[in-house]
Amino acid sequence: MDVIATKNKKALDRNPQEPTTMFKMYKRRRVQRQCHPSASLPDELVYEILLRLPVKTLSRSKSVCRAWRATISSPSFIRAYLKQQQSAISRHEQKPSFLIAPHTLDSVIHDEPWPSTFSNTITFYRWQEGRDDAHLVRATDLHGEFGSVYGMSHCDGLVMFPTDTRLYVFNPATGKGDVLKLPDGQKSRFQTAGLGLDLGTNTYKVVRSFNRSIDFNQQAHDAAGMEVFTISSRDSCWRTVAEDPPYPVTAHPMYFKGSLYWHICKELLQEGSPPPQGFLRFNLEDETFRLVLYDVVSPSDETRLDLVELGGELCLA
């Protein structure tokens, strides 16, 4: 830097009429050095190194320069990174782990149908196979923004956290305190939401079902609806799906290979209508519904059937 400054001074002595031009040249050289920290490495090698970095390190690497930020944020890199992590797990380079989000109550109100005093401190712990304890990966205090918590959904490390006031999306792997707070959607007395990946556009979507009105005693409800929020879209807002679901749904859905699977709410079906023996599938790409039937011999009323992913396959449990 001293050598460059000396050369610039000599040039200014020869041509005192162009101090602004010489300053711009010096500044441009500094920027070029700062924005190309890997100039001596081939781009292909830098890409392969970035693919193998831990998530926290990768997140910090976005601040190195614009080129790295653009690469790390690109959908193609994100897909390649997830595939790389999955391959490492399948080769047993990384042991499987569980993400644990304990829910605690600040106080207990007796005779509540569902607790309304959940703690607003959201914590995520990671427990890896073979370890004796779990370690804290992040903690966020939402300072009294909600009272109740419902079933969470997850996809590729993102966690959707539904409450009685709004929906939140976390990325526990980054360890940061930031959280995506989704805007309010359609008003509803009963809602359920899920998170998944649109395989067509490679964007993550939160899908929320809602009932415009509901009466469990009369087994009646107005037409149910669905609305979608696309994460990372510039004009992110809720938009109603063109096709209403053919059946009322309940419980949080399960994500599997580009689709969300909902339980059908049998309590809200019209009296006399036989309940369909299956799940309601919502395709995140074309945003259409399809009934997925299953064949179970004489299940009892007490039997609850769920869809689970096992070894990359969708199974009924």
Rank of each mutant, 00 (worst) to 15 (best):
D2M: 12
V3S: 04
V3D: 01
A11H: 07
D13P: 00
R14V: 11
R14F: 07
P16H: 02
Q17W: 07
K24I: 14
K24W: 01
Y26W: 07
K27G: 09
R29Y: 14
R30S: 12
R33E: 15
Q34M: 15
L41W: 10
P42A: 15
L45E: 05
Y47F: 15
Y47D: 13
L51R: 01
P54Q: 09
K56T: 14
S59A: 13
R60P: 06
S61E: 04
S61C: 15
V64F: 02
A70R: 12
P75L: 13
S76C: 02
I78P: 00
A80I: 05
L82G: 10
Q86V: 09
S87A: 10
S90W: 02
S90K: 06
H92W: 02
F98I: 09
I100A: 02
A101N: 08
H103D: 09
L105W: 01
L105A: 07
D106A: 05
D106E: 14
S107W: 05
I109N: 11
H110T: 13
D111H: 15
W114L: 11
S116I: 15
T117I: 05
N120A: 05
T121G: 03
Y125I: 13
Q128K: 14
G130N: 05
G130A: 09
A134F: 00
H135Y: 11
R138N: 12
A139S: 13
G147A: 04
Y150T: 12
H154C: 13
D156M: 10
G157R: 12
L158V: 08
V159P: 00
V169Y: 00
F170K: 09
N171R: 05
G175R: 03
K181P: 04
K181Y: 02
L182K: 00
D184P: 10
G185K: 02
R189T: 14
A193G: 05
G194R: 04
L195G: 02
G196C: 09
L197E: 05
D198F: 00
L199H: 03
L199G: 01
N202M: 12
V207H: 01
N211V: 06
N211I: 05
R212T: 11
R212D: 08
N217H: 09
N217F: 10
Q218P: 01
D222W: 06
G225Y: 03
M226T: 04
E227C: 12
V228G: 04
V228T: 06
F229E: 10
I231F: 05
R234P: 00
S236I: 08
E243I: 15
E243T: 13
P253A: 13
K266F: 12
K266N: 07
E267N: 10
L269T: 03
G272T: 10
Q277S: 08
F279D: 02
F282D: 03
F282G: 11
F282H: 02
N283F: 07
N283P: 00
N283I: 07
R290M: 15
Y294T: 07
V296L: 04
V297C: 11
P299R: 11
E302A: 10
G311L: 10
G312L: 13
E313R: 14
C315M: 06
L316E: 01
A317H: 02
